[in-house]
């Protein structure tokens, strides 16, 4: 298989006395789509947030595309960490678009401010991204005028405007009305078909089953079972996973 994009080694994370991640290790190859599932409080969102240091880890190592972001809980210096994390884009449950900027400006902002790109250079890329998500006619609209599904698609485009190698999705459809999840999942599916490396923390079992090449089931801060979706969903071995699948597929 291809190059290793993300490697976590024995990652530990505590919130006070609570151990949310206990000795997590995993690897992600180029072009792989991994779904992380599990009950709430299992640590799956924390796992994702540790990758781009929205949370700092208390033990273990994380390497992105072969470069250590943190080694034995010691982080590289700030500018270096920012550069390494720049290879990853992130999409949040609550979208977190910038409400004071139009849709187009949301896409232009980071490339212009962080990468110091000229507006003329990023503009065609942003317009192409808006066309891809089918929202080119909304370019001059402010985000709150859009539906949740549209906002989330803009959030995906905003992350893609930074040209990341890896996309992190933190429950991207969890705050959407059921009839709006489809359009977001379709955008993500298109991205997967373009061979984007993706980690998706999700409750959408359909998506995990159809799009993910590998599913990771987490509970109590531990990876309880992982494997191809058909194996995980059809012949689960772990007791916690069996219980979890029973409770959601019932």
């Amino acid at each position: 298989m291809g190059t290793t994009m993300v490697r976590m080694e024995n990652v530990r994370k505590n919130f006070g006395d609570l151990e949310v991640l206990k000795d997590i290790s995993f690897e992600l190859k180029q072009g792989e789509v991994v779904a992380v599932i599990g009950p709430s409080g299992s640590g799956k969102s924390t796992l994702l947030r540790c990758l781009n240091r929205l949370e700092t880890i208390d033990g273990g190592s994380i390497a992105i595309e072969g470069e250590y972001l943190v080694r034995d809980a010691k982080y590289v210096e700030e500018a270096e960490a920012r550069r390494i994390c720049g290879k990853m884009g992130m999409v949040f449950q609550q979208f977190n678009l910038f409400p004071h900027m139009t849709v187009l400006d949301n896409l232009l902002e980071a490339p212009m401010i962080v990468k110091k790109m000229a507006r003329a250079d990023i503009l065609p890329i942003a317009e192409e991204l808006l066309r891809k998500i089918g929202l080119e006619e909304k370019r001059d609209v402010y985000p709150t005028k859009l539906s949740g599904g549209q906002q989330q698609r803009v959030a995906i485009a905003r992350a893609l405007a930074m040209n990341p190698d890896i996309m992190l999705f933190d429950e991207p459809t969890s705050s959407l009305d059921p009839e709006l999840t489809g359009e977001v999942l379709k955008t993500m599916r298109n991205l997967a078909e373009e061979n984007m490396t993706m980690i998706v923390v999700t409750h959408e079992m359909g998506f995990a089953r159809e799009v993910a090449k590998r599913v990771i089931f987490m509970a109590d801060g531990v990876v309880q079972e992982e494997g191809p979706p058909e194996e995980l969903f059809e012949t689960p071995k772990n007791e916690r996973l069996k219980m979890f699948l029973n409770s959601i597929l019932r």
Partner: peptide
């Protein structure tokens, strides 16, 4: 201002000052 705004900016590579 919601925490999510800081997180979105950080995830996009903004420095604190930016």
């Amino acid at each position: 201002i919601q925490k999510g705004q800081y997180e979105a900016a950080r995830a996009l590579g903004f420095t604190y000052v930016q």
